[in-house]
Every structure is written in structure tokens, then in C-alpha cells.
Nucleic acid binder design. Structure first.
Lengths: 221, 221
DNA sequence: TAGATTGTTAATCGATTAACAATC
DNA sequence: TAGATTGTTAATCGATTAACAATC
């Protein structure tokens, strides 16, 4: 086992930039490039090149002055750091329109993520197939998640059901929950919750728009 | 015009916490509370109470020792800071499953956000009604967005169409774009783009799971 | 009054940026 | 060689935490 296998707890901002690097590098590789410079990465993300170099330094991949970094190695290093080098099976709870959208989303291939089971409380949906995934009743969460040894749960249920469904997932052995509800669910310490909070995102956007509107005026009235 | 109307550029982390405060305060108000303490807010968000007090201090709402902060005033101050005190009309581009989910999402009421027009390139969808909103052809973006004076665009098109659609929105006078594609779209300086990047969110989750797995072992092998 | 809670100032921490050396 | 690019160390900046005073 070599040094890069010792997964270090990377800074969160760095982790958040990794997927964007990955996307750009793969584009460049598709265009035939085998090396990529920190300047190219930085320009695409709108950040300082030295920040890109620091992010790459954390992967332990050395670059060549005058050439840049080896594209293929970067891709592998990023995937490894994010745990995207091995396939991950996920269970989706809640087959409403958002659940549908996620099951059908083909962008997860890059992340080696596949939704292998889906659950819904609505009997009319149960038994139906959504993008090749059969919808099961909630009562089967424990049995199926356990049997398939699923470690990742995707929560797309109505807010009112969020905490309850999270608990079912945890009880079934899930280690991470990708939470698309607007509830702050509570789980044991050894389970990670990552929330996609639309209100939070919209808050940043609305505030910036409101602020911009004002700063265009020379003086506030 | 009083002091709180001078919108100050709040720290981004503060803005991101505001919607969660808002949600909790409204829950408490529904339960009959008229005051709320920084400790209660902090507990719900898993942060330090002093941080909540700082966030509130930025709104200019004073609290009463022994009592806490006036719930109603907090709600109004947060809404004002986020620009959620006035109704916002939005245009949605791309009526795929994610677009459907967003048009149908009833959580936007709190933010006074309503999607008033939707566009799609697919002629089969055009003319259909999604949750009461009629789907229009892309060619009408300019005319309708202009006429309705819409300042917010929601981008839920396939990646390949993202930049082009963003440009159409900007040309029609939109001031902010809520970007659900995984493309880093480029726009003029006076337009704000806020992206909901699923890959970024998943990256954080996967990395934490991978890291946790390891830290549970006493020594790395 | 005593005690709970707010409010403020200083210290710490982490991430970014600046400056510059090293290298192909 | 000269020049572009990587790599590293120090300075800066912003946000959080700590310590403690103020107040109802």
C-alpha cells in the first residue's frame, strides 16, 4: 500500500473543487491532451492557479515545469480521493418527481454511482419500474438494503417523512445519506448526512441579486 | 428609509444559515412561541450559540437577555435580507424530469418564488401544462421573459444546451440564473449565477464516507 | 438579587493569496 | 540559455471560537 492510499482528510473547499477539475480534465483528454496546466484548470474554475496547484499537491501527483500535470494520473487521483474509483450502489427513498429525476439522471455514471433499488410509500407506484428500477414498499427497506449491502441512501421523500425514513436507512446499515429534503435530519455519529439544500442555494442567489441591484447605483438613497 | 434597508453584503456562511433559522423560527411560532433564544437556534443547526447571535446581530435585531429574540421580527429581517419579502417571478428552461420536479415543488412559497413560465425545446411538450404552467418553445424566451420583466431564470436543460440557454436568458434581461446543469456557464459581470452542483455535493459525501470508514480502524494498515 | 441570556472584543483557526525559489 | 511552469514558505484575510462584560 503506497502513500496515496492513506486517505487524508482533505480541506472541504478542495473536495468541492475536485469534481470540476475532473470534468475539465476529461474534456481535455477527449480533445487529445495528455497534460494539463494549473493555469488551464484555474481559468475554467475562476480561481487562482496557485490554488489549483495546492489542490493537486494534496493528491501527491507531481507536475512537470513547462508541461503541466499528467491528465490520466490526475483523473485517477481525484477519483480515488473521492471514492469514485469503485462502484457504489445506492438506495433511493421516495419516488416523487425529484426521485424520478435522480433515478433517470445519467450523470452519475462518472461517479460510478448506481441506484439499484427504490422505495415509495404509495402503493400505486409499488411494482412499477422507473428507468429500470423497480419501486418497492417502504417495509422492504431493511431487508433489501441489508441484503444488497447498500451503504448510501438517497432521501427524496416529503419533509414530513424525512426523519423516519432516515432512521430506517440507518437501521438497515447505511453509512451515508444524501438528503434532498429540507429537514435537518439527525443520525448517529458514524453516519454522514450531506444535504442538497435548495433554500440555502436560493438564499445566496437572491441575496446577491438584491445586493447587486443596489451596488450599481452610485449612492444608496 | 431606515438603517436595515441598507443591504450590507453579508458573509456568505451567514446567508447560508439564514434559511435554516427561518425554518426553525417559523416552526416555533407555529407552536406559539414569540421569542427564541440563540441557544435554540444553534442547537437546531448544530452550531455555537455565539455564532447564531453574530448572525442575528448582522440583521440589527436586538434581543432581550433572559428572553431571547423576537420571533416575528427575526422572520421579517431574514426575509428582507434575502430579498424574500417581495414576490419573485421566475422562468424555468428545460421541462425534463428535474424541471417538472421544480415546477411542482411547493416549498418555494416560503421564498415568495413562483415559476410563471416554462420553456422546452421538445415540440411534444410545448403547449402542455405542467402544474398549471404552460410549456412554451425556446424561441419565445426573449419575448415572454422581457414582457413579464422576469429577473430570475432556472436552468434545468441538458448540459449541452446550458450555455446557449443561459445566453438567451441574459439577452432577455435576467439578472440571476439558478443553474442545475453541471456546466460552468459564463455570463456578463452584472448577472449572478448560482449553481446547484450535485457532483460537488456527492463528492463531499463520498469523501467523508471513505474517510470515516478508515478512521474507525485504530491504525491504518 | 441571582441567574440566564445577550453583546462585544480578542484569540484562534483554516483557507487563500503573495512572493519567490526550483526545475524542466 | 531563457522562459514557462511547478512547488514552497510566509503573509493576509475571513470566519469561528473563546473569554468576558452587559443587561434584563
Amino acid at each position: 500500500m503506497n502513500a496515496s492510499d492513506r486517505l487524508s482528510p482533505l480541506p472541504l473547499p478542495t473536495i468541492r473543487r475536485y469534481p470540476a477539475y475532473l470534468r475539465l480534465i476529461r474534456e481535455r483528454m477527449a480533445a487529445g491532451d495528455e497534460e494539463i496546466s494549473s493555469a488551464a484548470l484555474a481559468a475554467a474554475l475562476g480561481i487562482d492557479p496557485v490554488l489549483a496547484r495546492k489542490d493537486i499537491a494534496l493528491m501527491g501527483i507531481p507536475g512537470r515545469p513547462r508541461w503541466g500535470y499528467p491528465a490520466r494520473e490526475l483523473v485517477e487521483a481525484i477519483r480515488h480521493a473521492l471514492g469514485w474509483d469503485n462502484a457504489t450502489d445506492a438506495a433511493l427513498i421516495g419516488c416523487g418527481s425529484l426521485g424520478h429525476a435522480l433515478v433517470g439522471y445519467d450523470g452519475f455514471a462518472e461517479q460510478h454511482l448506481s441506484i439499484v433499488v427504490a422505495f415509495d410509500a404509495n402503493p400505486e407506484l409499488q411494482g412499477q419500474t422507473v428507468h429500470g428500477v423497480k419501486v418497492r414498499p417502504m417495509t422492504e427497506i431493511d431487508r433489501l438494503v441489508r441484503r444488497l449491502r447498500i451503504r448510501l441512501g438517497i432521501l427524496t421523500v416529503p419533509d414530513a417523512a424525512a426523519q423516519e425514513c432516515a432512521e430506517a436507512l440507518v437501521a438497515a446499515g447505511v453509512k451515508g445519506i444524501w438528503n434532498f429534503t429540507s429537514v435537518q435530519i439527525s443520525v448517529p455519529d458514524d453516519v454522514i448526512v450531506q444535504s442538497v439544500d435548495l433554500a440555502q442555494s436560493l438564499a445566496v442567489l437572491s441575496h446577491k441579486i438584491a445586493n447587486m441591484q443596489q451596488s450599481t447605483r452610485p449612492f444608496p438613497m
